[in-house]
Design a protein around this nucleic acid. Structure first.
Lengths: 251, 251
DNA sequence: CGCCAGATTGAGTGACCTCAAAATCGGTGG
DNA sequence: CCACCGATTTTGAGGTCACTCAATCTGGCG
């Protein structure tokens, strides 16, 4: 099998130990993305507890900050940028299980090992919480646990959709589904879809090769379904036809 | 695409509304599978609350009791038998997202619609809880919520493994992974693996066709990796070689 | 301008799918 | 016990969609 996907920018992505520091009690009060993250369940009165627990960290593009199989010591909350989550086989085949962006919470694991790796796509800023501290927070704020359950349930639904895609959809249907998902995920609700990830990442997410992704996008361009813009964006032209394709209604 | 998989025993599986009745307060005290289910987080003192909420239901083989897209009104806890969970495309293509057996909890959904369907493989006995009552129980017993979060996290890990399988593994690797998973899942830890589901279900779970599943099992038999027994069982002969294959170490 | 990683395009192959037929299993009734 | 029937499974033959290998093109950057 091809190992194109293993030829990464860094042959062995090293873990970034960028220390960062615990924040001042008022830190989380001014956090711009608090409203859209799990942190929103903690009131202003108690937010100092959270701020003391959080460690802000910067991760450079291409750097990995969770290693599959490593001891699961921390939880992460992404405050800016986007990351890819993945699993790998011994021979280098990779499956990206999801992309996470601003506001996403990472690191849920019952086991004491991470079940997946995580790598920054662009420059990523995140808040790190140690497991014991997080556990303490969950004990003290049941709403936090409820929110995490909701978060996990949503991810489970997304995972089931992805299984349907990987198991039963054609290449064209996969790419169409992907573009629509990226559109929904984008903060700005325009029809210009940002695709910060490489073709290789798209392929590893969709269970395809980079060539097939590229060919399929070219086909969509000639079919006037999309226009491929400069700088990692795609403009959706024929929304309805793309939706029909993604839903698997037409061959 | 083939619609072999849509030719079910029942062309249109009807929802089974087998009423069942609320249980006596002492009912859950004697439940044999309480220890291995979410119900274990509720003490003997409070178990009457749970018993009053539960409605025991019987589902016959091949009958569906959760319909994809239907209003999510209930949670379910399986007390015996096994069920398949699945998603479908408009043209009949199906992806089984998982199998659930004794002790499993079903119905987590943030949305008000079920994201998947569920159908009994053999005769299934289950406890049904209405969402409002379940919500009340979660309010009263935070340990229940914690347990559900743990359950959801485990399912998330399983889903990620399945995405790796569907996206990147070969047919042989998929079937090997499946047999080992079924072995781990079996209560009786022998090397005789029970496979209550049909080839069609296996195919829809592994993202293959029934022919490929059948051919792959035949290949494993001639390679002396397994022996195919009567009555939906497979005996694993070469455990280590099968594990190597499932892990994707060898081609 | 030259370099290089990433992306596109082309040609040929192969793993799995499709269609079709034969074999086996499980249940039923004589 | 055995013959029969439908459903499921297995096996066979051929086709195809996505993969592999390889060459070319593009864009960002020193």
């Amino acid at each position: 099998m091809s190992d194109q996907t293993t030829c990464r920018r860094d042959a062995r992505p090293r873990r970034l130990i960028l220390a960062g520091a615990h924040r001042q009690p008022g830190y989380c009060l001014t956090c711009g993305i608090r409203a859209q993250s799990v942190c929103s369940v903690i009131d202003d009165d108690d937010i100092a507890r959270l701020a003391e627990t959080a460690v802000e960290t910067l991760v450079l593009p291409g750097r990995s900050f969770i290693e599959e199989g490593a001891a699961a010591t921390d939880f992460y909350n992404i405050t800016s940028g986007s990351v890819k989550l993945f699993k790998a086989l011994p021979d280098g085949r990779r499956q990206i299980t999801g992309f996470a962006t601003t506001g996403h919470f990472l690191g849920l694991a019952v086991s004491d090992q991470y079940a997946f790796g995580a790598e920054a796509i662009d420059t990523v800023r995140l808040c790190r919480f140690s497991r014991p501290r997080m556990r303490q927070l969950m004990d003290d704020f049941p709403r936090l646990e409820r929110r995490l359950l909701a978060e996990a349930s949503n991810e489970l639904v997304a995972a089931q959709n992805q299984m349907l895609l990987l198991g039963r959809k054609t290449a064209r249907e996969r790419v169409a589904s992907f573009l629509l998902e990226r559109m929904r995920e984008a903060q700005d609700p325009a029809e210009d879809v940002p695709l910060p990830m490489t073709r290789s990442d798209m392929a590893d997410y969709l269970g395809l090769t980079i060539e097939t992704v590229s060919r399929t996008l070219s086909w969509m361009r000639t079919e006037r379904l999309v226009a491929i813009g400069k700088g990692h964006t795609v403009r959706i032209i024929a929304m309805e036809r793309l939706q029909t394709l993604a839903a698997g209604d037409a061959a």
